[in-house]
Design a protein around this nucleic acid. Structure first.
Length: 279
DNA sequence: GGCATTTGACCAGG
DNA sequence: CCTGGTCAAATGCC
């Protein structure tokens, strides 16, 4: 099977997470025969298993085929290597180019800092399609993404990722004293009290304007503010791709599990019911 | 003034 | 020729 590099990383991390959850279950079982914590560990285990299965299925479906643009991006991403022979990279990706696609509910936040560079009304879609590129394009990061509300479920976004982040890991934590980064992950299920965008710049993380953090889910102002509705809380002047998000910390493999498992009832901002979204 | 976003124009693929 | 993806000038915000 073949996996895109990001998918392979996710697969590896999910496998690690699965093992950690299994280990946690064992520890909890040794501590007490039956406890709600054990159920939680089992839940995490099941979720990891489902994600792993999905990734493997996607890899099997995609097969070994590679397109020219994809080949160029991968080879160009290799530091210092000369450009590969053949035609130069196309300035525009071909329509329907291969992408890592995902559908999210209520949020387009993925932990990266994106800069919007275009918006287009698409035939057959009520909502415009939004084009983002990595905020660190100047550093050579070629990652882009395309965000489109799904037709039947306006609360859901279909996000297609193109290219790979070559600026991974560039994010540095803010200096001490600042407010913590936005940690709310809005899955669209509990945003009844969502405030208008004017209130987004709260706390000590309000300076920049690239999107990171969370997006409100107030359908009331979706209809009127086609552009403003995409505004998302900013992760501050973070110099790297990654937003300071606990989930991304977890995905980054830097102690995320410890932090998450340290508080089984409030998983770093994620409520337990939010995990059900993934099932 | 610097930076990010918006938006119309341009361009290339199908 | 139509449509989708990107560019770049204009605009707004901090």
């Amino acid at each position: 099977m073949t996996l895109d590099a990001p998918a392979a990383v996710v697969l590896e991390l999910m496998t690690m997470g699965q093992q950690s959850a299994a280990h946690l279950g064992d520890l909890l079982r040794a501590a007490s025969p039956a406890s709600p914590q054990q159920d939680l560990a089992a839940e995490i285990l099941r979720c990891c298993g489902r994600v792993i299965d999905a990734l493997k299925a996607a890899a099997a479906a995609s097969g070994p085929k590679r397109k020219a643009a994809e080949y160029y991006q991968e080879t160009a991403a290799a530091a210092g290597s000369p450009p590969p022979p053949g035609p130069p990279p196309p300035k525009r990706r071909s329509r329907g180019a291969e992408a890592i696609k995902e559908v999210t509910s209520g949020t387009t936040v993925d932990g990266f800092i994106w800069r919007k560079y275009g918006q287009k009304d698409i035939n057959g879609h009520r909502h415009p399609r939004l084009y983002y590129r990595c905020a660190h394009k100047s550093q050579g990061c070629a990652a882009t993404r395309r965000v489109q509300r799904t037709r039947d479920q306006p609360a859901e976004y279909e996000i297609a990722y193109y290219g790979e982040h070559t600026c991974r890991g560039a994010w540095q934590p803010p200096p001490q004293g600042g407010a913590p980064p936005p940690t709310v992950v809005d899955f669209g299920s509990n945003s009844v009290d969502a405030s208008p965008p004017a209130s987004m710049s709260q706390g000590g993380w309000s300076s920049a304007s690239s999107e990171v953090g969370f997006e409100f889910d107030a359908q009331e102002w979706w209809h009127d503010t086609a552009a403003a509705e995409e505004q998302q809380l900013v992760g501050g002047a973070a110099p790297g791709c990654y937003a300071p998000d606990p989930v991304m910390e977890f995905l980054d493999g830097c102690g995320g599990w410890e932090a998450v498992l340290g508080d089984p009832l409030d998983l770093g901002g994620l409520q337990l019911q939010d995990f059900a979204t993934f099932q």
